[in-house]
Design a protein around this nucleic acid. Structure first.
Length: 571
RNA sequence: GCCCAUGUAGCUCAGUCGGUAGAGCACAUCCUUGGUAAGGAUGAGGUCAGCGGUUCAAUCCCGCUCAUGGGCUCCA
């Protein structure tokens, strides 16, 4: 982020802290950094804050800003700072100071408020021009759920009023694109508390969208040498014990009992794929073996994290497990990255990559982890692809490359991931016969391209703002009459369209044309065919195009060809 | 799971300082057959999230549960 903007925001967070301390004596301040979207400050305040408090605080902030109080930096010995903050009763600051190793620390003072802070800050509160407090939230001290929960106040700040206003307008735009809003408006899906939290019910148009994605996926996987497999939803508990899931992933799993035998409902698809591999003796000649499944998994996500389609408890991954020789790792990983690149280009997503390394809870030897991490890193390095390291964030069985999409308005979403696994082949004693006749251990890659179809759909809805490209639009063409006389003509057009595989609907209601058009526009349907007396007599079409313009006097045949062409080229 | 807020018709929301509720859109019927973003009339529709408590009386007050939203932690 822009250094200046960062300073503005950081100073605004101090301004807020000062206002809060003014208004609510006894509040303890924790930390208050600038963040990508603004700033926050965490407070320890027993009664907690309410929305009304935000207004009061904001008002006080304006007063302090108007008073134009100088912000002064002071350097002191760490021990002196500890003494000072102890005296002030700011125990969180003392806690922070105790984990700082430097001899000297800096503080910033504005009027009656002094904060431990590295800085930099603006010279005076009068330089803070444009800010707004946005929301309240709970946040654990130091981000650890075992610690006390503090109250966090989020706000945003900009160097000038116009930028602030633009940002608030942007937030409105984000709201309009919200997939939960659009999911309802476009009648794509619902989530019902009668059915259960985090469980998605697809309505016809949403199910069609999903089917289109699945169809796309199957074709793309076939093109790249994947084999389709299908496994069961529940597998015996012993399998999950053997794989390490029971040990490392139990809190996310559901269990059930059938005839006194314990089963685990799958949270991942790998075990069945492993069983397919194990079903025969494998030769080095047939590797890599790529098993693909649109596999539905159930994960017990904590109730507080569920979010529309983005975070659910049952979802379907475009999952594959690739069994290969160690010498094939580089090429295969690269192949997956190319696959992801191809697919994301089609949807119009940019993306960034991260490598996640060994987490605390994990299986496998140190050497294997090192080999696996190296394999992933080496591919990205050799291709000159930039990435960041996300330490300790790997899967329990192996490190991974996480791919974060950037959508149309710049937000990032984690969808695709590539995980390198030496551990499960070991645990399930997988092998192949190598060219020298010896039994050897294959490596396993776990990978998804779109990730979870639910999340991907959510991202797609927001990315396109509900305005799907023709090839993904559940309804591609709406055919409407002007008066009842054109009913049969509309039906003829409709029949011809669906016969040719065009996804069409008719609007034959006894309503004014302007109403029908409005509703089609609201539903963001790519094409509207308007059939009145003129068109019926001349046997032509008048087509209104979603993105502007009109096709006049076009023949039905030409129109169908146009739609088909647009569909195959995925424009 | 934790913190805060919210839950009223299919949807978006009013409302009742405690006396069992209202609008717009959607839906149904009728009138209207209208050429590019909302024609008109009438009607139907709600155990005010669920369960307890306080009260003569609870949609409203209190408690619990569930769900949703904003976050924290976690993740595809």
């Amino acid at each position: 982020m822009d250094k200046n903007l960062e300073t503005v925001r950081h100073s605004t967070s101090h301004l807020m802290a000062q206002a809060v301390k003014d208004l609510y004596p006894g509040v303890k301040v924790a930390i208050g950094p600038s963040i990508e979207t603004g700033f926050y400050y965490d407070f320890d305040y027993e009664p907690g804050f309410t929305e009304e408090d935000l207004e009061k605080i904001e008002k006080r902030m304006h007063e302090i800003a108007a008073a134009n109080i100088p912000i002064e930096r002071k350097v002191m010995k760490r021990q002196d700072a500890i003494d000072m903050f102890t005296k002030m009763g700011e125990l969180y600051k003392v806690d922070l100071l105790e984990s700082i190793t430097d001899d000297e620390v800096s503080t910033y003072t504005q009027g009656t408020f002094t904060d431990l802070c590295r800085g930099p800050h603006l010279a005076s509160t009068g330089e803070i021009k444009a800010f707004k407090l946005l929301s309240l939230a709970g946040a654990y001290w130091r981000g650890d759920e075992h610690n006390k929960m503090l109250t966090r106040i989020y706000g945003t700040a900009f160097p000038d009023e116009k930028s602030l206003k633009d940002y608030l307008t942007f937030l409105e735009e984000v709201k309009k694109r919200d997939h939960r809003r659009l999911g309802k408006d476009l009648d794509l899906f619902s989530i019902s508390d009668e059915v259960g939290a985090g469980l998605v019910i697809y309505h016809p148009k949403g199910a069609l969208l999903r089917w289109l994605l699945e169809d796309f996926e199957r074709r793309e996987h076939l093109k790249r040498g994947y084999h389709f497999v299908v496994g069961p939803h529940i597998l015996k508990l012993d399998m999950w014990k053997k794989s390490g899931h029971f040990e490392n992933y139990r809190e996310n799993m559901y269990f059930t009992k059938v005839d006194e035998v314990e089963y685990g409902i799958k949270p991942m698809n790998c075990l069945s794929h492993i069983m397919v591999y194990k079903s025969q003796v494998r030769s080095y000649r047939e590797l890599p073996l790529r098993y693909f499944e649109l596999g539905t998994v159930c994960r017990h996500e904590k109730s507080g994290v569920l979010h529309g389609l983005m975070r659910v408890r049952e979802f379907t991954q475009d999952d594959a497990h690739i069994f290969l020789r160690p010498d094939q790792l580089h090429e295969e990983i690269l192949g997956i990255i190319r696959f992801v690149q191809d697919v994301m280009a089609i949807f119009g997503f940019q993306f960034e990559m991260e490598i996640s390394t060994r987490p605390a809870k994990s299986i496998g030897s140190d050497e294997d982890w090192e080999r696996a991490e190296k394999a992933l890193q080496e591919v990205l390095d050799s291709e000159g692809l930039p990435y960041e390291i996300n330490a300790g964030d790997g899967a329990f069985y192996g490190p991974k490359i996480d791919i974060k999409l950037k959508d149309a308005i710049g937000r990032k979403w984690q969808c695709a991931t590539i995980q390198c696994d030496f551990a499960l082949p070991e645990r399930f004693d997988l092998h192949y016969t190598d060219s020298d006749g010896l039994r050897k251990r294959p490596v396993m890659l776990h990978r998804v391209v779109l990730g979870a179809l639910e999340r991907f759909m959510g991202v797609l809805i927001e990315h396109f703002g509900g305005k799907f490209p023709l090839w993904l639009a559940p309804v591609q063409v709406m055919v409407m009459n002007i008066t009842d006389d054109q009913g049969p003509y509309v039906k003829d057009i409709f029949d011809a369209l669906i016969r040719e595989g065009v996804r069409a609907e008719t609007d034959l209601r006894n309503e004014k044309l302007s109403l029908k058009i409005r509703e089609s526009v609201v539903k963001k349907i790519p094409y509207m065919i308007i059939a009145g007396k003129k068109e019926m007599e001349s046997k032509t079409l008048t087509v209104r195009v979603r993105d502007g313009g009109e096709l006049k006097d076009i023949s039905l045949e030409d129109f169908i060809n146009r739609v088909k062409d647009e569909n195959t080229t995925r424009r």
